[in-house]
Design a protein around this nucleic acid. Sequence first.
DNA 1: AATGAGACTTGGAATTACTATA
DNA 2: TATAGTAATTCCAAGTCTCATT
Length: 968
Amino acid sequence: MTVDACIKQKCFDDGPAVFKRNNKASKRTEMNSELKNSPSQRPDGSSGRHVSDAPKGQNSILQRGKAALSAKVSPVKSNVTSSKGSTSIEDRTNYLQQNSESNMKEKKVSNKHQNKSNGDSDDSDDDKPLNVRIATASAASPKSQLPNVLKGLSSRVRSSSQSEKTKVSIKKSDEDLEDCIPLSSKVHVSGLPNRQSPNASKGLSSPVHSSSQLDKGRTRIEKSDEDLEDDIPLSLKFQLKRNVGPSSKSSYDSDEDKPLAYKLQQNGSSKRDNEPLKSPKGLNKRPLSEPSTSGQSSIKRSKLSATPVPAKVNQVMSDAKTDDNDNVPIAHRMKKLAHSDNKSIFSKKPPKLVSASFKKTTKKSKKLAKKSKYSKSTKVPPSSGEGQKWITLVHNGVIFPPPYKPHGVKMLYNGQPVDLTPEQEEVATMFAVMKDTDYATKPRFIENFMNDWRQILGKKHIIKKFELCDFTPIYEWHQMEKEKKKQMSAEEKKALKEDKLKQEEKYMWAIVDGVKEKVGNFRVEPPGLFRGRGEHPKMGKLKRRICPSDITINIGKDAPIPECPIPGERWKEVKHDNTVTWLAFWTDPINAREFKYVFLAASSSLKGQSDKEKYEKARALKDYIHDIRVKYTKDFVSKDITKRQIAVATYLIDKLALRAGNEKDDDEADTVGCCTLKVENVTLIPPNKLQFDFLGKDSIRYFNTVEVELPVYKAIGQFKVGKSDGENLFDKLDTSKLNAHLKELMPGLTAKVFRTYNASVTLDEMLNRETKDGDFAEKIVVYQHANKEVAIICNHQRSVSKSHTAQMSRLSEKMDELKAEMIELQKDLIRAKKGKPPLKDADGKTKKNLSPEALERKIGQTNAKIEKMERDMKTKEDLKTVALGTSKINYLDPRISVAWCKRHEVPIEKIFNKALLAKIPPRQRVQNFHVRASIELWVLITHILPMLSLINRVHPHVLFDQPESAET
DNA sequence: AATGAGACTTGGAATTACTATA
DNA sequence: TATAGTAATTCCAAGTCTCATT
C-alpha cells in the first residue's frame, strides 16, 4: 500500500495485375509455370530476405515472397455467385434451426445438470477439460471414479438410444464411425479423373477415401457429402465436385477464395523491405495531456452481444451435427455446399438478412433482459438469446501481490547515500531494476518517473535531479537477489513453488454453471513503472498499487462473496451481472478511462464459444467475399468520395490484412491502422505501386510495397491531393463508418474478420498446396512455412534475440567441422577402395581402418547431418524476426490444422502446444471414444481405458477424429 | 453524428519450465 | 550436472468493436 498512498491519484498473381480479376486468361500460362514455385522460392534464388541483424521491425523477412503462386487466378465473374455460396447459407440456417432445437433440449440438460450429482454419466461432463472432469469427479460417487472418458462413453452409448436424441446421435455416429476408421486402412478412390491441380495426384494416392465410404455416402441422405469429404484431400474434393455435382465452376480454380494478402505474397512486386524501422513517417507527436480522472461508475450497461451459446449447448449442437463442414477447409466449403445439399430453399446469393447467429438483440430487449435476468436466471439458459453469459458463477476473487518489503539498500545522490522511506525506496527500486532495459535511457521515461517519484519524495527532499541519482547499489542488490534465487537447490525451488501454488490454488478456478473453469489473470497487477510500447507519452509513470477498494467483483447472486484477502479492507463493489464474463475489474491507474479485467482462461468454454463464433464469421465471409470484392471494385471510381474511400479502405483491409485503425488519444503512442493512415504513410510509386510505411499496433512498423489496381492507385493519389503529410488519408472515414458499411455487406462483418479470414484461408491453401507425401518432419516444415506466411501477412514480428548471432556462428562452426569431417571421410574412402589405410587424423592419431562400405555409410550419415543442420540454420534465420505464435493462437481456425493433421497423420501435439490443445473441447475426444466404442468397444475397454492416465498423450487421431472438434 | 464507457481480443516481451548437449 | 537453447507460460499493453448518451 505504500505507493498507493502517495500517488493516489498479389497481385496476387504475378504481374502488375494483382488483384486483377479481369484479364486473367492471358496470364494463365505463365501463372501455371509459376505455380510450381513455392512462395518462398524467390526468383533471385534467395530465401527471400536479407540476412541481417537489424533491430526489431527491420525485417528483411518481411520481404514478400516473389514467386507467383497460383495458376488459379481467375477473374471476377458475375455469374460465379449463382452457384456458389448459396448452400452454405442454407447450411447455416439449418445449423441455426437445429441449434434452437438443441437449445430446447439443452435447457433440460442444463437444469438437470445443476441438480444431479456428478457421479452419473452425463454429457455435460464432456464439456470440461479432462483434468477438470477428473477433478470434479473425484469428489463424487463411486461411479464417478471411473475414468471420465468411460463416463462419457457410457453416456454416449446410452444417449444414442434415447428417443429424444436418437436422430441426432445416429446421424452423428455414422459420421464418427467413418472418422474412426484409421486413415491408413481406408481404400483409395479409384476411377476418378486426372487431377489438374498440383495437389491432385497426391490426393489420389492419399490413403483417405474408402470405397466403403462411398457406398455409405450413397445410402446416407443428409450427411453424405460432408462425411465423404471429411477425409478427402481438398484437391481431390474438387475433382469430385466437378464430376459429381452440377456446380458450375470450382472456386478453387479461381482466385476468389484466396486471401488477397496471400496472393499478394506471391506477387513478385510486393515486398516488405528491411529498412530502418523506427523512423517511419508520421511520428509527429501531439502534445501530451493528462487524462481526466473522472470517477468511474462501476455500474455498466447491460450489454448483449451475439446470442451466446453455452458450451453445453454447443456440444448438443455439435452432436446434432449442425455444422458438418467443420472439417472442410474454408476455401472449399462453398463448392461443397453448392451441390451437397439438395434441400436448399435459399437463393444462391448470400442473403442480405442478418443471420441469427450474428444478430444482436435490440437495445430494448437488452434492457429488458437486464432488468429481468435474475428473476428468471435459473430458468433461462444463456442460450436463450438475452445476453446472459452464465447462470451461476462462483469464484474466490483475486489475489494481491505481497506488500513491499524494504531492503534498506541505499542509493546514492550526488555520491552520497540517501535515506529513503519504504514508499520512496519502493519506487526507486522499480527504476533501478530496469537499468538494463532501453526504458532506463529514454528521456520521456525518466521524466515521467521522476515526476511521479518526486511526489512521493515530497517537495523538501534532497533528491531533485535525475542526473545526480545513482541507483547502482539497488541494482546490484537486485542482481544478487536474482543470483541467490538461481543458486537455490532444486528442493528449495520446488518448496517455494509449492508454497506459491498452495496460496494461489483457490483463486485459480471459477465454477461457471456448475463447471470448473480456469481463471485467466487472477493475480492483481503489482505496482511498477508503466512500460508503454513505442513512444508512449506515459512511459515511466508510476503504476500504483491496487487495493481491494479499487476492485469490483462480479459473481453469481447466490455465490458467497469472496472474502477480501487484506484484513480491514473491502471490495469497492460486488455485482451480479451475468451479461458479462469478467470476474473482477479495476480502473487502470495509468489511464483512468480504461479498465483492467479478470477473465476466465482461454481454455474456458466461454472463451471457446466466442472463439468459435469468430471463426464461423470468418468462414461465413467466404460466401460473401466475391460480392464484396465486386462491390468495392465498382466503388473505386464512385463519384461519392466517401464511397470511394470506403472502397479503397476495404480493399486494403482485404488485400493487406490491415487493422481497422481506430482513432487514438493524444496520450497514447502515435500508431495507425487503415482508417487512420496519414498521407505520409503511403507513397505512390508509378505506375501502380503503393509503399506503406507506418507504425501499427504496438508500434511495430509496417513497411510494404505492393502493386495495386490502377483505380486504387489513382484514388489514393486523389485522396492525398491538397493534404499535408500528417493529415488523414481517409478523411471521410472512420472505423465505425467502415464497419457500418461492412455490416451492410454481411451480417456481423467487421474489419477484423478479414484478418481472421485471410489468415485461415492462407493456411488452408498453403497446407493443401504444399503438403507432399513425405516423412512427418517434412510435413511439419510445411505447416511451419504456412504458419510463417500467415505471420508475415499479419505483420507479426518479434525482436531478434540477443543471442541470435552467437547461436548462428556456433552453428556454422559446427557446420564447418562436419564439412571437414566429410572431406576426410571421402579421402579415406578413396584410399580404402585402393586398399590403403586411412591417413592419421588432425591430432595425428591413427584412425580405424574401415571398409569402403562402412565409410560410404558414414558419409551418408554425415551428409544427412549436414543437410539437417543447413535446414535448421535456414529456418532459424528465416524465423528470427517472425512471431508464429500470435497467428496460431488468434487467427488460424484450429479445425484447419486438426483436419490437416488428420489427413496427413501428423500428431496434433506437433502443431499445438498444451495450451492450444486445452482450448479444444475434450467433449469430442470422449465422443470419439464413444464412437470407437460402438465399433470396437471391447478393444477400447481392454486396451485403451487402462491407459487413460495417459489420455493427453494419446495419439491425436484418437483425440481428434473430428476436426470439427478443434473449434476453440 | 460524435463521444466515450465498457468489454473483449490481440500482441510482443519477459519470465519460467523444459530439454538437449557437452 | 551444468549450461545453453528452446518452448511454454505469464504479463500486461494495445488494439477492436459495441452500445448508450449527448
